[in-house]
Design a protein around this nucleic acid. Sequence first.
RNA 1: CGGGGUGUAGCGUAGCCCGGUAUCGCGCCUGCUUUGGGAGCAGGAGGUCGUCAGUUCGAAUCUGGCCACCCCGACCA
Length: 492
Amino acid sequence: MSKVITPQEQDYSKWYNDIVVEADMADHSAVKGCMVIKPHGYAIWEKMQQTLDKMFKDTGHVNAYFPLFIPKKLFEAEEKNAEGFAKECAVVTHYRLKTDPQNPGKLIVDPEAKLEEELIVRPTSEAIIWNTYKGWIQSYRDLPLLINQWANVVRWEMRTRLFLRTAEFLWQEGHTAHETKEEAVEESRKMLEVYADFAENWLAMPVIKGVKTANERFAGADDTYTIEALMQDGKALQAGTSHFLGQNFAKAFDVKFANKEGKLDYVWATSWGVSTRLMGALIMTHSDNHGLVIPPKLAPTQVVIVPIYKTAEGLTKINEFAFSLKAKLEAKNISVKYDNRDSQRPGFKFADHELKGTPVRVAIGERDLESGTVEVARRDLLSKEVINMNDVEAYIEKLLRDIQANLFNKAKERMNTMTHKVESYNEFKKVLDEKTGFILAHWDGTPETEEKIKNETKATIRCIPLNNPLENGVCIYSGKPSTQRVLFARAY
RNA sequence: CGGGGUGUAGCGUAGCCCGGUAUCGCGCCUGCUUUGGGAGCAGGAGGUCGUCAGUUCGAAUCUGGCCACCCCGACCA
């Protein structure tokens, strides 16, 4: 058992923080609510970025970059969007500091350097992007416009948690423009599928795809599609959203195009994003009391080789084998680190790589060289096996696939066990108190009922699952008729 | 914004009630011995005790103000 990590069962929230900090992913910074993403954490984020970026490009999107600052006038153009984000905006009001005459060596804001118009630090980029699109779109020939940007955004949250909710975070935001409603809806659903694919096949995290209720919708959207994941402690996490924006932004920013009949019409829009919050999702889906567990497909280092030696001569022999194994694995596109630090002993390295989540560890000592074997350990199950040197590359290649699959299956099974169907409000509350997790229950479809349930139980409707089976029933709260169950949970 | 808590070496802490120049562990540096699950021994470096003011011969310790951060709520696409 680790010396440093608070066990999950003792305090899940503390455990989470310990993992983030002790596994060297991120740290609190000098700025409240902001974090420093450390190299190990950033390397995982880069793997996510690379994977997603390719998926976006494979679906026809290109990258661009828009400014960090949004003039207030533009920001307020789409009313619902502006209102939704108004309470959490950082605002730039001045552009210069000067030496404090009362207090030499200190700086004050120069009152003479007040901006004519305040600049909003983007909490999301629809406004600046749609203002730009206005100049880019005149004809149906300019459509569809399929653009993504990798950026940072700022949302001045009252309470923050590393990766899950920070005042500044990294994300990607796709912003597309289309000729028809159908095409835009299709785009937003397509990107939801991309997110679900990424979540399940790379993060090894099962998700429920669905659509948000009006209450939970993105400010300025006609529909918000979401992927919802279930964390180990039974709380839900919104892992990605894709919005059908209708013509709301086109109207707010006056983006019209001439269609094939020569008539002017407003374009149809989508936006979609995932953020560094996925790092939190990754932690709370797979990690344990020994530290981080990273699915092989996202691990910056998939295999670590640890030499065990007594003498310089011994090390030389091990080096020969280790470098050759490293090269062979790399030829199979497996990322390998040979941890030949002379400053640490093997036991320390074992613990260190366990903490950091390296999926596979190969230990090789002089005894192995004699017997022609190596010791291969897997992080997910914390088990190890002695493998013949001749078989080791093939073994590891398969092992990485097994780990990826095992992590997904384990998470899927947990989600299934923690999903409960309930028929009454009492049962609903009982599940929340005792078991937590996802709850499938009938709801009368009104925002009022949704709001009351939220106020009384802190549970929200995570989504109305896509392809939801229709089923007659009665709302657990109001007793009114309902045609389908919706997905409830307490959420991060 | 409400409630609670914490600020002492890079990290974690003792000391505070009862005022006399700061304890211990981890980490760090040097050397030797070690190396198959977080090494051992010896030596060493490192501190304006969050900050400002007050009381006092003397403040980490007492008094008051301020600041910062953390946790729990409220808030949150």
